Simulated scan of single mutants.
Amino acid sequence: MVGQSNMLSRAQKFTLAAVATTLLVGAAVAQAKQTYDGNWSVLITTDKGSCDRAYRYPVRIANGVVGYAGQASFQVSGRVQANGAISVRVSRGSQSANGTGRLNGTSGGGSWRGGECSGTWTAEKR
């Protein structure tokens, strides 16, 4: 009987630890979403290839999901992780580019590649 009682106690402790961890992770993700959510101005610079030298895009992040906030026919999709890591795809017609990098709350940067072109990007929260 003592062994079963002890096992139940361990199971209860494990369950409580799992619930506490889930709540802490959930709170961290919610905080990250609040940190990165909002309007961003993104400058994309071409370092290699025959693409235009630079583009500027208005981007909106809502609940960690990245989208285009402008009027042109661009599509922007992606996601920001709780640690600020971001991956994005920008497309227009049959052309597309993929970018990765990191946001720190009010700014960020990374690299991108699409077709024969590649370069860097910087972002600033508005």
Rank of each mutant, 00 (worst) to 15 (best):
M1Q: 14
G3Y: 04
Q4W: 11
Q4D: 14
M7E: 14
L8A: 15
R10I: 04
A11Q: 12
Q12C: 08
F14D: 13
F14M: 04
T15A: 14
T15L: 12
T15S: 12
T15I: 11
L16G: 13
A17E: 12
A18R: 06
A18S: 11
A18M: 13
V19S: 10
V19K: 13
T21I: 11
T22P: 02
L23R: 11
V25S: 06
A27V: 08
A27G: 10
A27I: 08
V29F: 13
A30T: 09
A32F: 08
K33E: 15
Q34T: 09
T35S: 11
T35Y: 05
Y36M: 04
D37N: 15
D37V: 12
D37M: 12
G38W: 04
N39A: 14
N39G: 14
N39R: 09
S41Q: 15
S41P: 03
S41C: 03
V42I: 15
V42Q: 10
I44F: 14
I44M: 13
T45E: 15
T46R: 15
K48N: 06
K48A: 02
G49F: 01
G49E: 01
C51A: 04
C51M: 03
D52F: 08
A54P: 00
A54Y: 07
Y55Q: 07
Y55W: 06
Y57C: 03
P58L: 02
P58R: 04
R60S: 15
R60K: 15
I61V: 14
A62P: 01
A62S: 14
N63Y: 09
G64Y: 07
G64D: 05
V65N: 10
V66P: 07
A69M: 01
A69G: 03
G70Y: 03
G70N: 02
G70A: 06
Q71N: 10
A72Y: 01
A72S: 14
S73E: 13
S73L: 00
F74T: 04
F74I: 00
Q75V: 08
Q75W: 01
V76K: 07
V76F: 04
V76C: 02
G78L: 06
R79G: 08
R79A: 14
R79F: 05
Q81Y: 05
A82K: 02
N83G: 06
G84L: 13
S87L: 02
S87V: 10
V88T: 12
V88S: 03
R89D: 06
R89W: 05
S91F: 02
S91N: 10
R92P: 01
G93S: 07
G93Q: 09
S94G: 02
S94I: 06
Q95P: 01
S96L: 05
A97D: 00
N98V: 10
N98I: 12
N98D: 15
G99A: 11
T100S: 03
G101M: 00
L103D: 05
L103T: 02
N104V: 08
T106A: 01
T106F: 05
T106P: 00
T106W: 00
S107K: 09
G108W: 05
G108I: 04
G108K: 07
G108Y: 01
G109N: 06
G110E: 09
G110T: 12
G110H: 02
W112Y: 08
G114A: 10
G114K: 10
C117D: 00
C117Y: 04
C117G: 02
S118Q: 08
G119C: 09
G119P: 05
G119K: 12
T120I: 13
T122M: 01
A123K: 06
K125E: 01
K125Q: 12
R126S: 13
R126N: 12
R126E: 05
R126D: 00
